[in-house]
């Protein structure tokens, strides 16, 4: 943590703004996440979950993966949260507070979560203490750069389009076409499975 703070005070202009925004979104995300797992109102929990998911999408943007961010917004916030809200409506009469949303296992849960976090934090700080992310090279490619015809296709696409979306598309439809097809079959199976499980006899 100290090194993180030190990094902000480094005086690197480019990173100060980014870091301020990052900390803002990170804190909002964590607070919302805490609310998701502690609030007694299930609808509030769902709405806080929206904030968490949006915060994660922002993290994706920070990491230079706009496509993942867009998908996160569309699929998670657009579809999954709506699905969850449907679930809430179908399984509860009233939408007010529900005094008994938590079990008696709060202590156990907190203990396990803290232990887990302590362990992860230790190993992360121990392992990646000062490792910097590489600079986002896309920003450095000037639009006016003459296109080098000797470079291979991937590089060409990356330079000319300036986005990782094309690279993701290439990766999915070339190297990972089989997992992709497997996921499509999985979705179909889930579709049928959900219908079979949930339908009335």
């Amino acid at each position: 943590m100290i090194s993180l703070l030190a990094q902000i005070s480094n005086g690197d202009d480019l990173y100060v703004a980014q870091n301020i925004f990052w900390w803002f979104f990170a804190i909002v995300t964590v607070i919302a996440a805490v609310k998701v797992v502690t609030t007694d109102n299930i609808v509030h929990a769902a709405l806080h979950l929206v904030i968490v998911l949006a915060g994660v999408a922002v993290q994706f943007v920070f990491l230079g993966s706009e496509f993942a961010a867009a998908t996160q917004v569309l699929v998670y916030i657009g579809a999954i949260v709506v699905l969850l809200l449907f679930g809430i409506m179908l399984t509860r009469g009233s939408l007010g507070d529900d005094g008994l949303v938590d079990t008696e296992r709060r202590g156990l849960g907190a203990l396990v979560a803290l232990l887990l976090f302590g362990l992860m934090a230790f190993s992360l700080v121990d392992g990646f203490e000062d490792v910097l992310l590489p600079e986002d090279s896309r920003n450095l490619v000037e639009v006016t750069t003459p296109i080098d015809t000797d470079i291979d296709d991937d590089e060409f696409i990356r330079q000319t389009r300036g986005s990782d979306t094309a690279a993701i598309g290439d990766a999915i439809f070339e190297s990972y076409i089989v997992p992709f097809e497997a996921v499509s079959v999985l979705l179909l199976a889930a579709l049928i499975g959900a219908v079979v499980i949930a339908r009335k006899e």
Binding site: T103, R105, L108, G109, V112, L115, L116, L119
Partner: peptide, 16 residues
């Protein structure tokens, strides 16, 4: 959920 708690605790211990 108690099983889940054991699961996570066990995983934490093993990772530790």
């Amino acid at each position: 959920q108690q099983y889940a708690a054991y699961l996570f605790a066990g995983a934490t211990l093993l990772a530790g």
